[in-house]
Design a protein around this nucleic acid. Structure first.
Length: 520
DNA sequence: ACGGCCGATAGAACTTATTC
DNA sequence: GAATAAGTTCTATCGGCCGT
């Protein structure tokens, strides 16, 4: 019969384990979520193992022995015992995509985004369960909401990672987890796996999507990070304990993986940060509770001459130097100036193509503000849930178009590839106007020859980077074509300030929603 | 101000891993 | 197996911090 699995909660426990003695646990009687809130070490299930650290989650299968090897004095975790119910699709959950939806929650470690902390939900569930004051129905609703949260916030696993590990490389991976603090060579690992080094490398990459040495280094860096946060170790000690041959190489590797040096990582909660970006990184920093000592946008716009730009850049560099930043965070638009920034302070440039959430998560992880990021994202999610129905009631099927004048051209925002576009059209569900490209970031028209925008509402950015752009806009506004447009005739033109920039941060997105709600 | 220590960084030389 | 890429070690140098 065609069935789909449904996870139900049977009981919740909170456990604390003191001391560093390894512990073995009998095979579980039922599947369970294991959620770590404190501690460090290694968790072994069958013949695979994963590092233990706060905010780590596993779905443990029944019948598999579990062994914990703590590297910290106290381990705190929640255990949620589950019941799996297979229900008929046709009967109980017609048309439900539950089976597909639950796929990220395959047995084993469930990698969560660092900002996705289910702790509050788990604690609430634990309290509800322990106090006995809440009905089973409500408890189950809470649990289902938690499952939904986990599905939404788990990192999608690469296809290769979901395949059961081949017999050959599995012991070598195990060996890496157990012995990463020692010197390991490809030859040793390939021998354990029973391959020649060449085939081992290839096989490993095919199955795990990464090279063996890279995998090993990730383990070492993860260990180093947790050790550095314990504060009472020197970089040299951490380097040795994490399996790096010497501290110079460790520093280099650490910086490459984490983005900042080990010492800065230790003090990352209170360092002087400068933000250089077109993407309003200073808003992101502020939303994380970090106040940048300097914020600038040094990008050369199309209408700016080379000399003008060089002069502006020079002034920014001078002023930034005076603020004595310890770290400069920049977006990919500023890559050409990296060397000049590096002369002022270590510079971290974020990759091209990151969406706004990834940018926020990345910056938060760099500065130890994961909790703040998680909090903001939760708040934003809540706000989105409140605002969407109100806005849908107000605007219904009416179409919306967003425009601005950039480089003396009329730019109509598309329905994707920009945080603002995604917020308006995807997340809040506004209907795009006739000229809004469904699969593009934007489309540009000459101010002399632009089509009727065919839209019920027209939202225009009245924040101009160049006075000439503003002049162009005033000229457009005076034309007959402009006045013949539906949105203009019906008085549905709004000015929206710099939403395009605000869309990059949680606080900016909240403010955009506030502005929208004021329109209702 | 000075020296000692620690850590970051960069470059050269060499070794090992990965890809072809 | 060879060619190429990446990792590793070592050295020199710089700057910050601390105690004298």
């Amino acid at each position: 019969m065609n069935t789909t699995p449904l996870l139900l909660l049977s009981s919740v426990f909170r456990r604390q384990y003191a001391g560093r003695e390894p512990r073995s646990f009998a095979p579980l009687p039922a599947p369970a979520f294991l959620y770590i809130t404190q501690g460090a070490g290694l968790l072994r299930r069958g013949d695979s193992s994963d590092p233990i650290e706060p905010n780590r989650l596993w779905l443990l299968e029944p019948g598999l022995p579990v062994r914990v090897e703590p590297h910290a004095d106290l381990l705190v975790c929640y255990i949620l015992f589950l019941r799996r119910l297979d229900v008929s699709k046709a009967g109980v959950l017609p048309g439900s995509g539950l089976s597909r939806a639950l796929r990220p929650l395959a047995p084993g470690a469930i990698p969560l985004y660092p900002d996705a902390a289910p702790l509050e939900r788990v604690e609430a569930l634990y309290d509800a369960y322990r106090s006995g004051a809440t009905s089973a129905f409500v408890r189950n609703a809470m649990f289902q909401e938690l499952v939904h949260f986990l599905v939404r916030h788990s990192v999608p696993r690469p296809e290769a990672d979901r395949q059961p590990t081949a017999k050959g490389i599995s012991p070598s991976i195990d060996y890496m987890h157990a012995h990463y603090s020692r010197k390991l060579t490809l030859e040793t690992l390939s021998e354990i796996a029973g391959f020649t080094p060449t085939s081992y490398s290839r096989e490993f990459k095919r199955l795990k999507g990464t090279s063996p040495i890279d995998y090993l280094n990730s383990l070492r860096i993860a260990h180093a990070k947790s050790m550095l946060l314990e504060k009472n170790h020197t970089v040299k000690e951490v380097s040795a304990a994490s399996g790096f041959g010497n501290e110079f190489y460790f520093s280099r590797m650490f910086k490459r993986h984490v983005g900042i040096s080990p010492t800065m990582y230790m003090n990352r909660k209170n360092i002087r940060v400068a933000a250089v970006s077109c993407l309003r990184f200073h808003d992101i920093l502020q939303s994380l509770g970090v106040h940048p000592v300097y914020a600038a946008n040094c990008h050369q716009t199309k209408t700016m001459s080379k000399e003008e730009h060089e002069q502006q850049l020079g002034e920014h560099l001078d002023r930034m130097r005076e603020t004595e930043p310890e770290l400069i965070i920049a977006d990919h638009y500023h890559l050409p100036y990296k060397d000049r920034f590096s002369r002022i302070a270590p510079t971290h440039i974020l990759d091209y193509g990151m969406d706004w959430r990834t940018v926020t998560r990345h910056i938060a992880a760099l500065l130890g503000r994961e909790r703040e990021a998680a909090h903001n994202m939760r708040q934003l999610e809540r706000k989105l849930g409140e605002a969407k129905p109100m806005l849908n009631r107000r605007f219904g099927d009416q179409t919306v178009t967003m425009m601005r004048v950039v480089h003396k051209l009329i730019r109509i925002q598309g329905a994707g590839y920009h945080p603002l576009n995604e917020l308006i059209y995807a997340e809040l569900g506004f209907k795009p106007g006739f000229c809004v490209p469904a699969n593009g970031m934007n489309v540009e028209f000459s101010p002399d020859k632009y089509p009727n925008l065919g839209t019920d509402h027209l939202w225009i950015q009245d924040h101009f980077y160049d006075p000439e752009d503003e002049a162009v806009f005033r000229r457009i506004q005076a034309t007959d074509e402009w006045h013949s447009m539906k949105a203009v005739r019906s008085g549905n033109v709004r000015y929206i300030g710099n939403w395009f920039g605000m869309g990059w941060s949680t606080t900016g997105r909240m403010r955009i929603m506030d502005d929208l709600l004021k329109m209702t």
